[in-house]
Amino acid sequence: MLLKTLSEAFGPTGFEDDVRNVIRGELDGRVDEMNTDVLGNLIAVKGAKKPGPKVMLDAHMDEVGLMIVQICDGGAESGLLKFRALGGIDPRVLVSKPVLIGPDRIPGVIGAKPVHLQAPEERQKPIPMDKLYIDIGAKDAADAKAVVKPGDAAVFATRYAEFGDRAAKGKSFDDRVGCALLVEAMQTEVPYPLYGAFTVQEEIGLRGARAAAYQIQPDIAIALEGTVCFDVVGAPSHGQSTVFGKGPALTVQDAQTIADRRFAEFMWETAKRHGIPVQWRRVKGGSNDFGAIHRVGKGIVGGSISVPVRYIHAPTQVVSLDDVENAGRLLRAVLQEIAEGSFTL
C-alpha cells in the first residue's frame, strides 16, 4: 500500500531521497515527464502544452527528524550520539523512542537517566534535547564512528499499521498523506496542464515550494497537507482545529496565509455538490507550502486541502482512512470542476 510505503520511507528535511525514489517509481510511465530541480524538488508534468489554466499541486516530501552532531568520546558518554532537531520537534516527545540513522538505517534508542535517579524537581520538567542521547549500542566512540558520522540524519522508527475504526498510525503522515494524494492525482486525466510538485524543506520554512512555484508559475496552486487535529478529551470546539473523520479541512487563515476566499468557497461548494464531507480548519497556528507559493512572482491563486492528523510532528501520528479517501475525492472533484470552468480566474 502506497501510504504505508511512503510513511515508512526515510525523509527528514534535506534528506528526502528515499521518498523521492518511491514516488518516482510510482509515477514512472504515468506522467509525461518528471524532473528534479537543483533543490531536490521532484516535479511531475502532464499536458504541459494543453490550453487552460496551469494547475500546480503540491505535497512536501520531507518530515521532521534529527541530525547527529557529535559522537561522544571519553567518559560515561563514550559512543553515545548527540543530536539536534531537523524541523520543529517538541523535545518532550523524544525520550524513549527508537530511531533509524543515516543511509544504512542504523537503529538506536533515545535514552535518558531513569526516573528513579532523577531529583523530584527534575521529574517535573521536560528533558531538554541537549540532555538526551541516541544509543546505538556502541562500545565506544570508535565503534560508533564505524557506522555513524556527524551530519547523518535520523527518523523515528515507527511502523505503519491500521487499527481502530478505519484509522492508521505511522510516522510522517505530515505530509506523506499529501504525497500519496498527489501521486494518485497525477494519474487522473485533465484537459489543462497539471504540475505535481513533490517539494523539499517544508519543515524548515516552506523552502522547496517557493522555488518550485517560481519555476512552474502556475495560475492555480493547491497544497495537499496533513494538519493539526486535536479533537480529544477536554478540547473545546475552538481548540480542536479539525475533527477526526469529518473529512478534509480547508483553510481560512493560518500563520502564513489568509486564504483566497473565492477559491476556498469554490472548493467548499465543490465538496457539497459532490457529497464529500469537508470541514474548516479552525486554528490560526501552523502553515503549509501554500503560504510560500501564493507570494511568488505576481501572486498565485489557490489554497490547500488538509487531512486531519492527530499527534502531528510526534513519532506516532494517526489519520482516519476515510479522511484520506475523502481528501482524494475532493481533490479529484476540484480538478474536474476546474476543467468544467466552475472557477474563473
Binding site: D37, R207, R210, A211, A212
Partner: peptide
C-alpha cells in the same frame, strides 16, 4: 541564495 528565483545550488 538557495531560494532566489528558481532556486540555486
Amino acid at each position: 541564495f538557495q531560494v532566489a528565483g528558481p532556486g540555486l545550488a
